[in-house]
Design a protein around this nucleic acid. Structure first.
Length: 550
RNA sequence: UGGGGCGUCGCCAAGUGGUAAGGCAACGGGUUUUGAUCCCGUCAUUCGUAGGUUCGAGUCCUUCCGCCCCAGCCA
């Protein structure tokens, strides 16, 4: 048997080579989120990449919070992020790391840069600094504070640290090149004054390092060998390397960039997701319509499906837009193989089986899964009155319609074949009940007269069933690219992204379920019990694929 | 007009000078007590463009075109 080998992505190729040549003895990666929001599907890609690489190459992956900006970060987010990473099935090496725990070292390295004449305290205001920086096509000008002595810089830096100056009045900058074509090299800011409470360090600091001064140094401290980030940081790599070269760091990590995930019909911007939450367009970060990991969890997606999806989309340096159909395929594929089957009627229509005794109840059985006998069979009570889906009955229909029609037959799944006789209507002319008959001897068998039913529909016994609410979720945005162009993404919200059905009937077993449990409601889709267990509610994870045309 | 990155099927993506993998979607057909699943089949003479090198180019060189990112004391 020849097994096709999965081709290596560009990062795997680099790592394989580094390991083979001894450029690196053991792979160490890290997933470095900023705790300023919940993780979304794009982060899932990064998590699968970093932890996955460590897994396949026998290395390690750290979880490190890049908490250098106390103004935007909160403890709630660090807890949520840890939970999401674990839920996806990954274990980080050792304890959780925090950039903030390296603040002392970072400060001493800032002093080192000042002492070696490679950094200075600059008194330009933010506006002035912007003017001095130049533009994309014009070089910048040197700050008038650029040539301060090391001694003066040292004392000014100390003053900044001790809270002697106001926020925004001074910053520490690296002395590199104000005329560089790469704007990140035009004397980038290393430290800024922020008199804010930090969730980890409290009020110890009133200066905080910028991303650029923190990230590479954190990597070096942790012995990260391959620091993987998204494309927009490629411009920062020269600065990353400059700092590593000019600081007494214990290791020399290397940065690599890959293309972040974009999904159509989806917004993957923390800022916009936060806006959806803050303005109440959705019911929190874990609303099942949110592309957050917490949202997918509540929606009924499995960690395996998310990981499979991340594997399917690949890792490259091009930034494309993945079709959300791929994600939907991943979850359908997983749930089809693993979700136990059950029957549910969302819009109940009563069917009275006129030739079935009123006081009789049969105990029928149905398989837990059509092609897995390891899942336990279900017991289904059957009686004179059953509910079927309103859509599964028509008084008359064309040949393509394979459900119940007056004078025609249909099979009740795992039960009898029935034949409809009459539709009972109310004063408004709406069908409120169907009169039908069972065909004797058709449980497990075709009708003896040879007239086979054209279709199969789901049903629920009226006298013994579970009553519950179903949340029919659909995509949050109608627009294929709500995130694109200058358009207002809020105006792209799908007004029918949630349809609540309160009068649903399901087979009895469904009332004995636990939160999070998932099922395929046959012919409807995949559903899971909501995480809030105070009521019986099922969330639709995804509908069944529907290729019926006509 | 500066710097960085990217252009292979509708979408994602292999390909690393030897004659265009795979997945998703779509479309045919078969099986089916889920219009699901499953199975079988179709789906790039061509790799943004124009030249060049070579016996041979998606892969090398040059030209042009297009798209993305950068002027936060955000990450």
């Amino acid at each position: 048997m020849s097994v096709e080998e999965k081709p290596l992505n560009f990062l795997e190729q680099i790592i394989k080579k580094d390991l083979a040549e001894g450029a690196c003895k053991k792979l160490v990666t890290r997933f470095p989120p900023e705790p300023n929001g919940y993780l979304h599907i794009g982060h899932a890609k990064s998590i699968c990449l970093n932890f996955g690489l460590a897994e396949t190459f026998g290395g390690e992956c750290n979880l490190r919070f890049d908490d250098t900006n106390p103004a935007k970060e909160e403890m709630e987010y660090v807890e949520a992020i840890k939970k999401d990473v674990e839920w996806l099935g990954y274990r980080w090496a050792g304890e959780v790391r925090y950039a903030s725990s390296y603040f002392d070292t970072l400060y001493s390295w800032a002093q080192h840069l000042v002492e070696t004449g490679k950094a200075y305290v600059c008194d330009l205001s933010a506006d002035e600094a912007r003017e001095y920086r130049g533009t994309l096509t014009e070089p910048g000008k040197n700050s008038p504070y650029r040539e301060r002595s090391a001694a003066e810089n040292l004392s000014l830096l100390e003053g900044m640290k001790c809270g002697e100056f106001d926020e925004g009045s001074r910053v520490l900058r690296a002395k590199i090149d104000m005329s560089s074509g790469n704007i990140n090299l035009r004397d980038p800011i290393l430290y800024r004054i922020r008199k804010q409470h930090h969730h980890q360090t409290g009020d110890k600091w009133c200066i905080y390092p910028t991303y650029d001064f923190a990230h590479g140094q954190e990597d070096a401290i942790e012995g990260i060998t391959h620091s993987i980030c998204t494309l927009e940081f490629a411009d920062h790599r020269p600065l990353y390397e400059w700092l590593i070269e000019n600081l007494p760091v214990p290791a020399k990590p290397k940065q690599y960039e890959f293309g972040r995930l974009n999904l159509n019909y989806t917004v993957t911007s923390k800022r916009k997701l936060k806006q959806l939450v803050d303005e109440g367009h959705v019911d929190g970060w874990d609303d099942p319509r949110m592309p957050t990991i917490a949202g997918y969890r509540r929606r009924g997606y499995s960690p395996a499906a998310l990981r499979k999806f991340c594997e399917m989309i690949g890792v490259t340096k091009s930034d494309g837009v993945v079709d959300v159909a791929m994600l939907e395929h991943a979850i359908r594929d997983d749930l089809d193989k693993n979700a136990p089957r059950a029957m549910c009627v969302i819009n109940p229509l009563k069917v009275v089986l006129t030739n079935y005794p009123e006081d009789k109840t049969e105990r029928l059985t149905a398989p837990g899964h059509p092609n897995r006998d390891d899942l336990p069979a279900r017991e289904l009570p059957f009686g004179r009155e059953v509910y079927i889906e309103a859509d599964d009955f028509r008084e008359e229909a064309n040949k393509k319609y394979k459900r119940l029609v007056i004078g025609k037959r249909v099979r009740l799944r795992s039960a009898y074949v029935i034949e409809a006789d009459e539709a009972i209507k109310n004063a408004a002319g709406e069908i409120v009940e169907v009169r039908a008959r069972i065909i004797e001897g058709t449980v497990g068998n075709d009708p003896e007269d040879g007239v086979k039913p054209k279709g199969v529909i789901q049903w629920v016994a009226a006298h013994e069933c579970a009553n519950f609410t179903v949340n029919l979720y659909d995509r949050l945005f109608n627009d294929v690219a709500p995130d694109a162009g200058g358009k207002d993404f809020l105006s792209c919200i799908n007004p029918d992204s949630l349809v609540v059905k309160t009068n649903c009937k399901g087979e009895v077993g469904l009332s004995a379920t636990t939160p999070g449990q998932g099922f395929q409601f046959e012919r409807e889709g995949y559903f899971c019990r909501d995480l809030d267990d105070s009521k019986l509610v099922f969330n639709r994870t995804i509908s069944l694929r529907d290729t019926f045309v006509g």
